[in-house]
Amino acid sequence: METVFINKLKPLLDAVAEQMALLLPKKTGEHYIYSRYDPSGEIPVEFNNIRPCTPIKEFLLPVCELAATSPEPLEPEDVKPFAIFGLKDCDLRSIEILDKVFADEEFRDPFYVKRRENMFIISSDCFEVGENCFCNLFGGRPFAQSGFDLNVSKVKDGFIIEAGSQKGRDFTEKHPQLFTETSGALLAERDENRSRTQRRLEQNNAEYQFDAPTKEIVEKSQDSEIFDVEARNCVECQACTRICPTCHCFYLYDTKQKDYFAKMKMWDSCMRVGYAAVAGGANPYKILGDRIKHRLLHKFVYFLDRYGKDMCVGCGRCVDGCAGEVDIRTVLKKLSEEFKDKEKAKVTK
C-alpha cells in the first residue's frame, strides 16, 4: 500500500485538472451532483461524505448516444482522459459490474471501453452513512477496496492519498511537491474512521439481515404475492432503474437526420410496460408486479448466475429516488421472512 499525505484538497485537484477535465460532486440541495471542476476557485472545494446522487454510469454510458450511422459507418471517437473525484466503494463496484457486461471479451462496446480506459478514478472514504445506504449487506465497505487510481481518506488535519493503480502511482510520483509522508498515527486514524462508519452502517441495517442468501430467497419466491403488493406502491416512474448505477438496459432506435441516418442507443428500463413486448404482441411482463419481480430476479439471481456477482451494490439510490414507496431492502426483507416461514412449514409438515 502506497500512501502519502496532503493538507488540503485543492492543490491535488488543481494538479489533476491541469492534466485533464475533472468532475467532482457539488452539494445541490440535499444531494451531491457532479459538475466540472473550476480551478479558478470561485466555488470552495468540498469533500463529499457520502456517495453522490449521480450514478457513475452516466459517464460511461450516456443516457443517449449515437451508435451507428449510414450510409457512412460510424467508428467510435477517441476519448480524452478525464478524471472523476468522490466515488465511493459502491460506485467502484458498480463499475466492476458494468465492465462485465460492456467490456467482455466477445463483444466489447467500444464507446464504453474508450471512456472507461480514459477515466481516472479518484475515490474517497465514506465519512458518514446515507440514510438508505446498505452496501454492507452486499459485500460493500464504506471505503474503497479496489478499482481506483487514487483514493482519498479524510482525517482530522488533511487527507491520506493512496495509489491503487499504475496510473495513480505515476501521478503521485510526478507530483512529489504536493505530498508529505504518512505516519502510523495517521493510518491508525484512518482505520478508526473506517471502523466507525462501518459500525454505523451495520447499526443502520441491523433490521435487514436476511435469513438466507438473497439468490435463494428471490429464486424461491417467484409465486409470492409480495411483488403485486409492492406494485401498489409503485407509480411506474422508472426512477429506480435510471438512478441505479448497475442497471444498464438500453435500446437502439433509428432516426433520420438531414443527410444521414442515425442509430441511437438510449437507456431503457425494465419497469416500462413495453420493455419486453415482442412484435407479435406477446409480453411476458405486462403486469407491474411481474416487472418488479423480474428486476429482482435479474439483480439477485440471473446476473449472479452468469457473472458471479449480485447486480446490486446496496447504494440505496433507488430508495432515495423512488416516487412511490418502494424500498428494495424492505422488499427483500419481506421475501426473506415469507421464505423463512415457508421453510419452517416444510420442516414441521
Partner: peptide, 24 residues
C-alpha cells in the same frame, strides 16, 4: 426462442430467459 432482441450482443438486457441472453 423469440424475444425482443435489440443489441444482439448480450448488453441491452432485452432478451433474457433466466440467466441466458437469447441473443448470445
Amino acid at each position: 426462442m423469440e424475444k425482443n432482441m435489440s443489441c444482439g450482443i448480450g448488453k441491452c438486457g432485452h432478451c433474457m430467459i433466466g440467466k441466458y441472453y437469447v441473443c448470445k
